[in-house]
Deep mutational scan, measured.
Amino acid sequence: MAMNGTITTWFKDKGFGFIKDENGDNRYFHVIKVANPDLIKKDAAVTFEPTTNNKGLSAYAVKVVPL
């Protein structure tokens, strides 16, 4: 089920960042999981599918909501 969130941290040079989800949890995401990576920036609103990996909470099918 899709969730909403906000990008809180973005490491462009490393290709990953973190999203604060609607429950207040931080989720890892990688640029290859983003549909529109050219719009990635700190504080951008996103929708995504929540999941977990071996390191904890993460996100896939991430879409940055255009302003």
Rank of each mutant, 00 (worst) to 15 (best):
V62W: 02
E22F: 06
I32Q: 15
E22A: 08
S58Q: 10
E22G: 06
P37C: 05
D43K: 09
K14T: 05
I40A: 04
T6V: 14
D38Y: 10
M1G: 14
D43Y: 15
K63P: 00
G15Y: 05
A61G: 11
A61H: 12
L67F: 13
A45G: 07
P37W: 05
I40K: 00
A2N: 11
F48A: 00
T52Y: 12
P37Y: 05
N36S: 05
L67T: 13
G56L: 08
R27I: 04
F18G: 01
P50Y: 04
A45T: 11
V64G: 02
A45I: 11
G17T: 01
T51H: 14
F48N: 00
M3P: 03
T52P: 05
N23W: 08
N54T: 12
K14I: 05
E49N: 14
G17C: 02
Y28H: 06
E49G: 06
I7G: 01
W10S: 01
G17N: 00
E22D: 07
T51K: 11
A2D: 07
F18V: 06
G5K: 01
P66A: 13
I19R: 00
V65E: 08
V65S: 08
G24Q: 05
P37F: 04
M3N: 04
F16P: 00
I32V: 12
F16A: 03
F48S: 01
Y60S: 15
K55H: 14
G15V: 03
G24V: 02
F11W: 08
A2S: 13
D21I: 01
A2C: 13
L67R: 12
T51A: 14
Y60E: 15
V62Y: 02
G56I: 09
V31R: 14
I19G: 00
K63S: 08
D38W: 15
F18Q: 03
R27L: 03
V31A: 08
D38R: 11
M3E: 02
N26D: 10
V62N: 01
I19E: 00
V62I: 14
G5A: 03
F16G: 01
A61D: 14
K14F: 11
N36C: 07
D43T: 07
N23H: 11
N26L: 15
V46Y: 02
M3L: 13
W10F: 11
E49W: 15
K41Q: 11
K14M: 09
I19M: 04
G56H: 07
V65G: 06
V64F: 04
A44L: 06
N26V: 14
I19D: 00
F29A: 00
L67H: 13
F48I: 02
D25M: 10
V46S: 01
F18M: 05
K63V: 14
F16S: 03
E22M: 08
Y60M: 14
I7K: 00
T8K: 10
P37L: 05
K55I: 10
V65M: 12
L57P: 07
K33W: 15
M1D: 09
G15S: 06
D13W: 10
K41G: 06
F48R: 01
G24K: 04
I7H: 00
F48W: 01
K55D: 07
T9C: 14
K41P: 01
D38T: 11
K20N: 07
F16H: 04
T6S: 06
K20H: 11
K20I: 10
K20P: 00
N36E: 06
K33M: 15
K12M: 08
N53T: 15
D21T: 03
L57Y: 06
M3C: 07
G56R: 12
M1K: 14
K14C: 09
D21L: 03
K55V: 09
F11C: 09
I32P: 04
W10E: 01
A61T: 06
A61L: 09
D21P: 01
N26Q: 12
M1N: 13
M1R: 13
T51Q: 11
V31C: 09
W10A: 01
G56Y: 08
K55S: 08
T8D: 06
N54E: 13
H30S: 13
K63G: 03
K33Q: 15
W10L: 03
G56M: 10
D25I: 06
K12P: 14
G5N: 01
N23Y: 10
K42V: 15
N26K: 13
L57I: 05
N4K: 14
A44N: 04
H30T: 12
D21V: 02
N26G: 05
N36R: 05
I40Y: 04
K55Q: 10
Y28C: 06
F11A: 03
D25L: 08
L39G: 06
G17Y: 02
P37S: 06
E22W: 07
D25Q: 11
L57S: 04
I19W: 02
N54H: 13
N23D: 06
P66E: 13
T9M: 14
F29T: 01
F29L: 03
